[in-house]
């Protein structure tokens, strides 16, 4: 172990991999000092574990109805978070719901930044009218309040998990394009880009292989910070009945089904909301910490 840290801390790394891992190790050390960020990381690891081990963690099948056991309060033996109006175990539904949340978050986290990166780097690299047109489009999408645009898109596409993801991704890309463009403008005139160009590389190759990697760190921070928002919008769509369809155990949908008997059986709506809250808090804490660590401009404030 000691040799491992020594290898990571080596001031003159012998390979690119060692240098990269060494950098990440230093960032990790800095982040470890930030207790809130560690709490966030812990929550997200918990979410991942929950999704991975759902069949073992759940005490019941999330879909099987048992009308004899409907609306049992929390603390009932065998149903420690209670049951919903169809007698389904709320804990088991929350556990399986983590998979849905993770599915949506992952898909958005892959598609939206990729789209934003492509638009932003192309705009920044070529400049001129390409930049003008692409950034104007970005501004227009940025001008829509996200939830409202997502609502209108889902209204057209029809409800469902894939369409919800598509709608969220289509509303989430503009900030990434902005970030990527700003980064591209700073590296565009670098010597190493000129060197690659003189070696005969085409624009596509320069953007994909040499500009985009430089934009990744700032985009990744943005993604982490945005994930909480994505979870909230996805839950909002589910709550309005426009996302995942019943009987799938999606957290937002579970809240809306518990709304009917909020005053009598409060736990049906409260428990899944708590899950959404904790997970998005986790992403916010981690994103905040990551920004402090990886972005030297904001550190010290």
């Amino acid at each position: 172990m000691a040799t491992m840290t020594e290898w990571l801390r080596d001031p003159s790394p012998s390979s690119r991999l060692q240098a990269r891992l060494g950098q990440s190790y230093l960032a990790w050390l800095r982040m470890r000092r930030n207790p809130l960020a560690m709490v966030g990381l812990f929550i997200i690891l918990l979410l991942l574990a929950m999704a991975a081990f759902a069949p073992w963690l759940a005490t019941h099948d999330p879909l099987t109805q048992n009308l004899g056991q409907r609306l049992l309060p929390p603390g009932t033996p065998g149903h420690w978070l209670g049951t919903d109006d169809f007698g389904r175990d709320i804990w088991s539904r929350i556990v399986y719901g983590s998979r849905i949340t993770l599915y949506i978050v992952t898909l958005v986290a892959v598609t939206a930044p990729l789209l934003g990166l492509m638009i932003g780097t192309v705009a920044g690299y070529f400049g001129g009218w390409v930049d003008q047109v692409l950034m104007r489009i970005t501004d227009i999408f940025l001008a829509f309040p996200r939830l409202i645009l997502a609502l209108a898109l889902v209204a057209v596409l029809g409800p469902g998990i894939e369409n919800a993801v598509l709608a969220i991704a289509l509303t989430a890309w503009p900030p990434y394009a902005r970030v990527a463009r700003a980064e591209t403008l700073t590296v565009r005139t670098s010597d190493y880009i000129a060197a690659v160009r003189l070696q005969g590389a085409g624009s596509g190759r320069i953007i994909w292989g040499h500009v985009m990697p430089m934009c990744l760190p700032s985009v990744i921070i943005r993604v982490t910070l945005d994930m909480a928002g994505v979870i909230l919008i996805a839950a909002g769509l589910g709550f309005l009945g426009l996302g995942v369809q019943p009987p799938t155990p999606e957290w937002g949908l579970m809240i809306s089904s518990g709304r009917k008997f909020l005053f009598e059986q409060w736990w049906v709506a409260t428990m899944p909301g708590l899950a959404i809250f904790i997970v998005s808090l986790g992403f916010n804490l981690l994103g905040d910490g990551l920004r402090d660590v990886l972005d030297p401009r904001s550190s010290g404030k």
Partner: peptide
């Protein structure tokens, strides 16, 4: 502040309704 960013507004609304009204 972070809690404000993380709470689904519809859930907060339901909770507030339950506690302060119900």
């Amino acid at each position: 502040g972070l809690m404000g960013y993380s709470m689904p507004v519809f859930w907060l609304g339901l909770l507030a309704l339950l506690i302060f009204y119900g």
